[in-house]
Amino acid sequence: MASPSKHTAKQYLTGYLFISPWLIGFLAFTAWPFLQSIYLSFTRYNIVSPAKWVGIANYRMLLTQDALFYKSAWVTIKFAIVSVPLAVIAGITLALLLNINVKGITVFRTIFYLPSIVPTVATSVLFIWILNPNIGLINKSLALFGIRGPSWLNTSPWAFYSLILMSLWGVGGSMIIYLAGLKDIPVHLYEAATIDGANPVKKMWHITLPMMTPVIFFNLVMSIIGSFQYFTQAYVITPNGGPEQSTYFYSLYLYNRAWKYLDMGYASAMAWMLFMVIFFMTLLVFKTQKKWVHYGG
């Protein structure tokens, strides 16, 4: 067996060799733009003329002179708090259900994944259409029961709820990952449990869920990152921030500051504040890894 120091040196080299594609890409395409955007956050930059250093002015103004900053942050936090647990629970439940090998299950799996495949532009237009208070599908269905559906995208808080619903609708993506994870669970574990006389619920609790924790962890982290950066649907459906700004998400405000008002320095500051929040939350989740994530290795 090779001596420890040689082992480490070789591992050092091999390790870096393996991650070199990412490392190269990071240094070439990511690091510099990131550094530049940090720099820009300390400048006045309207894109069309050179950036001018202003120190922490952007950050100061964000925190003390911008009501919309707090409003949009709050909208986004609300969204994250509601949609992340919903998405994780829905994803797992759906995956468990679709893991049952009944006839025609492949068709159902396709159906549930469909919403994630359809391009956002079409789904957004589709939803605006469906949520139209007079001629839309939803209110027409409600009318059958004698309920007068609200003007969904035009009234708060319904606009916000509509967007949450739309985000749930795209749960098929995470479902696929859960399914892949489920298939990874060695069958013999289940067989052994059956021999021991365990019922399906016990099996799920003691085998399935623990073995799925690595992918649950993945989806949780990605959900958090995604929900804090939620932008596209809000931009297409409520570009002005929605009724009473109830759907004025942080990223939407950021976009407006950057591209509509050409206030890129300010927007960069906003981006880095968001970064810190996401980073902090993700770090928290990572720290809890040891407590609940179970790697088969």
């Binding site: 990071f26 990511t30 733009p33 990131f34 530049q36 955007s37 820009l40 956050s41 990152i225 950066q229 932008f231 990223s251 950021l254 976009y255 950057a258 591209w259 890129m264 927007a267 960069s268 981006a271 880095w272 968001l274 970064f275 996401i278 980073f279 993700t282």
Partner: peptide, 9 residues
């Protein structure tokens, strides 16, 4: 690197 909104980069 996933935590920074793409708009500003």
């Amino acid at each position: 690197t996933m935590a920074l909104p793409g708009q500003v980069t």
